[in-house]
Write a protein that binds this DNA or RNA. Structure first.
Length: 304
DNA sequence: CAGAAAAGGTCATTCT
DNA sequence: AGAATGACCTTTTCTG
């Protein structure tokens, strides 16, 4: 998932020659970038990662025609410990399971909960303390934390489905935008990129007509958009916030969207409480409520 | 192709 | 006693 990758040279080309573990680095300031504007953007951030902090000063060059050399001190983020802690209960020895960094107990709990399609209700308003000793006390809160840890219910059973042959892997080709709902376009069965998941989503979850229409507009917007076209659609949907997520991210991790949309924030718990991998379509729910559209490659603008 | 990582299955233990 | 949990193992996929 793109949001969880470490920033690459593509995102910060001026760091191309930066040694990964050093603290003092030298790099060229991009020709079009002033030191002030560089400062004003603050430390580069990407997704949930803080790319350390960068303090720079522009060296005064005796030769004004020479390259603008910048002296910088880059403080890299602390090296994560080898033994990661479970994002749900804090237990040590966590590894990646279903998209989240969790311990074995929480992994199997999440898998069983999704497969059993059970819904839990917290009797204490969803505020139960969670640690290795208390994690089994409230399953509702534990499952909530699993989802907040970016664990993906869709991943549960995927391997088994693949063995049974009823799972068609979807290969995402970054940057491709195809109008699936456009009659002149290719039939969905031959399409393999990010938005094809919407097709399977509609098929699997039997979205209603309203949700289908929103998804249709959604995808057509994406098809018609270039990376710079957000403003064009912003006139149709007054932008209240920018979640900076792709549609793929929204499908995988809807919670951040819920948290960023005021009208949905109060509903997020309800949505997750009712979540069922083969039941009510969570993304369709979000789309139908929000009047949401996606701009390919980044901005995820929400009109309310 | 081999090693690493992640998912799934089984079974003993604990809890209600 | 039945359900829930977690440790451990096997299988599968991914990656270099």
């Amino acid at each position: 998932m793109l949001l969880h990758k470490f920033p690459t040279d593509h995102h910060y080309p001026f760091l191309q020659n930066c040694p990964q573990n050093s603290t003092d680095v030298f790099y060229q300031l991009p020709p079009s970038t002033s030191t002030a504007s560089f400062y004003s953007e603050g430390p580069p951030r990407f997704g949930t990662f803080d790319f350390g902090s960068i303090m720079i000063k522009e060296e005064s060059s005796p030769n004004s025609d020479g390259p603008r050399r910048v002296v910088g001190r880059l403080r890299m983020p602390p090296v994560p410990p080898k033994l990661k802690l479970c994002e749900v209960c804090g237990h040590s020895g966590a590894t990646t399971h279903y998209g989240g960094t969790v311990c074995g107990g929480c992994k199997i709990f999440f898998s069983r909960t999704v497969q059993s399609r059970k819904g839990f209700v917290c009797e204490r308003g969803g505020q139960c303390p969670m640690n290795a000793g208390k994690r089994a006390k409230c399953r509702a809160c534990r499952f909530q934390l699993c989802l907040k840890a970016h664990m993906s219910p869709e991943e549960v059973g995927r391997l088994r489905d693949m063995r049974l042959g009823d799972y068609a892997p979807i290969v995402k080709k970054e940057g491709t935008v195809v109008g699936y709902f456009d009659e002149s376009s290719q039939p969905p069965t031959s399409l393999r990129d990010c938005t094809s998941q919407i097709i399977s989503f509609i098929d699997v979850y039997n979205c209603g007509n309203d949700e289908f229409e929103v998804l249709r507009a959604f995808v057509n917007s994406e098809r018609n958009c270039e990376n710079s076209a957000a403003n064009k659609y912003a006139s149709f949907f007054p932008t209240k916030c920018n979640a900076a997520m792709s549609i793929q991210s929204a499908i995988d991790f809807p919670m951040p969207i819920c948290e960023k949309i005021p009208r949905l924030a109060s509903r997020s718990e309800k949505i997750y409480a009712n979540y069922s991998p083969r039941g009510k379509p969570i993304v369709g729910d979000l789309l139908a409520i929000g009047g949401i559209f996606v701009v390919c490659g980044g901005a995820f603008a929400i009109g309310l």
